[in-house]
Design a protein around this nucleic acid. Structure first.
Lengths: 339, 339
DNA sequence: TTGAAAGCGCTAACAG
DNA sequence: CTGTTAGCGCTTTCAA
């Protein structure tokens, strides 16, 4: 006969059953504090029997720290972000934290949501959003809530961060396209600016310029598939003659790719070469086979979680900035390099 | 001069500044309880001034209810699931709850994670995972934590649920392919069983059988792109002569599609017709243009959140089972229906 | 309407 | 090593 509608057992009940004091129960179950092997066993046993579970709200209230971690992410339905969030959540969970997911759509609402997060005495926050207002980050610092920023602007307040090397990204893109025989370059640089996306597009353009081969700039609105499609129209309308285009995002690249080959009958890489960025799963699909630059979403997420944990454990350590590794991925939308 | 390292202000501080008692602060800020307009204003004012925020852990401890909601999801890096989780999180947030994201990978660890969730006195739980162990759901019921199941097995314990009509799905798939001129049918039915995916594949097969045109069954391992690719190999190896194949998942369909056209040079829909299921974003991409059946992930998520909220507000209402709407999406991998 | 007081369930500091 | 004693910050009766 299991206790149906009984109230949840408290540490007090466990204590009574195990014939010890509540504090002994706490010590035995929270791991901290010394307890005799005997008591520990009796407590565990009693807890088991009663189906007791520690109330984390009470514990958090006492410790001023809930074990909850805010995970702020925009564009969650995007392949890159989805896998990043997945890994971050998994790692957080593995380390004993509980991720509260805040999905951002338009900054308007976001600050209210993060505000709510702060009410829970979160132990920390990982921000992977494109653009959470800086004031919010400030607010966190004020409340001394550790924050780890993924790919956010450098000028931000002091905080641990994980980001990719923007200059190196633009350079790598240029090198890949150049080595594949590109002569006339173009780049897709969304008008909705984003720190890393805009950054690498500009860096690429700069490299082209420095090499004496200025790139034409196509400006779709956003950085999604549909925008890539739009970019193809823009490209044609402008009678752009580039033979090698760097799309600052895989989604953009895939849209542009489809536009060029399906809508405008271009062959790849013969008529035009396309290079993406991110290496999302779809880039590797047989029908796309997109050459790209891989920035490992999972690695970035894990770095972020590690940094956060380190800071939670030692709030006074110096701020760190981890770099996301990038690697070239040669597939079928760029020519084979003749060695 | 903002208070730098000061402790966080409590309701006590606000009370003092507003010249009222702490309970008045609570009443003014929690909405419940009557307060004079004057006190309310003073409290709000004082709270503002101090940068006070209610401690939800303390509130939750008192109310036995934290406002936290568990969101259990597997395969988050899959387009369908990602957009579902995004919408669920957004809706939850909009209704004042905070979603704790539990990502499931293999049932082994999952039960421990949900266990942890329960320690936070979550107000409810939405389970969209393929297969969280039934005992866990039982445990939730035992602790009277409301649970909403999305597309989980019917034989489950009593709970609110959101699911699609499996029979209707199989039937619709058959009808679409039949009307598009299909003669010989095949179906991809993953060996890793999943309630809805396996269900509609079987339902489709049953429809074929009933119509006197038994379907050939291809059995890839999972339900992802790579498995679809594998299915194409299986299809060819078996010298399958089907001219219309129902892939129980868009990812499967896209993999199968790429395998058939890129690897085996088949044209669509001339040589073979393919129908997917889900209508993920990629299905609509120009290069794929996959005919499919749309099950609206966002709608499902919203239904789930609504059901959960209703149950949290009234634990005694009868259990409900909402149905996810499905609609045919005719694109280029099936023939135009001659009207 | 408002103040007083009693907890919610737990942990940590302090004695024993 | 174990029991005692204070709270953590809030809500909620209960009087006034």
């Amino acid at each position: 006969m299991t206790d149906k509608k009984k109230k949840k057992p408290t540490s007090f009940d466990v204590a009574r059953l195990a014939n010890v004091h509540r504090s002994a129960v706490s010590r035995a179950l929270s791991g901290s504090g010394r307890v005799s092997e005997d008591t520990r066993k009796r407590v565990i046993q009693a807890a088991q029997e009663l189906g007791y579970r520690v109330n984390f709200l009470a514990r958090g209230l006492q410790n001023q720290n809930s074990g909850l971690v805010g995970l702020v992410a925009s564009r969650l339905d995007t392949p890159y972000r989805a896998s990043q969030v997945k890994v971050a959540a998994r790692e957080l969970l593995a380390k004993g934290y509980c991720p509260i997911l805040i999905v951002a759509e338009g900054d308007v609402t976001l600050s209210g949501l993060i505000d709510r997060l702060l009410n829970y005495s979160v132990s920390g926050m990982i921000v992977t959003s494109d653009s959470p207002p800086a004031e919010i980050i400030e607010e966190c610092k004020r409340l001394s809530v550790p924050v780890v920023l993924i790919n956010r602007d450098l000028r931000e307040v002091a905080a641990d961060r994980v980001q990719l090397d923007i200059q190196a990204s633009g350079q790598l893109a240029f090198d890949m396209l150049r080595e594949a025989g590109g002569r006339r370059f173009a780049v897709l640089d969304p008008s909705q600016e984003t720190f890393t996306v805009t950054g690498r597009a500009r860096a690429f353009a700069t490299c082209c310029h420095s090499a004496g081969m200025p790139a034409e700039v196509i400006t779709p609105v956003g950085q999604n598939y549909a925008d890539g499609l739009e970019a193809a129209d823009l490209f044609m309308a402008a009678k752009c003659e580039a033979d090698a285009v760097f799309c600052s995002t895989d989604l953009l690249a895939l849209g542009f790719l489809d536009g060029m080959r399906v809508k405008y009958g271009r062959r790849l890489p013969e008529d035009i070469q396309i290079l993406g960025y991110d290496d999302i799963e779809q880039a590797g699909w047989l029908g796309n086979n997109l050459s790209t630059i891989c920035q490992d979403a999972g690695a970035a997420a894990m770095l972020a979680v590690d940094l956060l944990q380190a800071r939670i454990e030692d709030g006074s350590r110096p701020f760190e900035c981890a770099t996301i590794p990038i690697t070239p991925v040669h597939r079928a939308t760029t020519r084979k390099i003749t060695t």
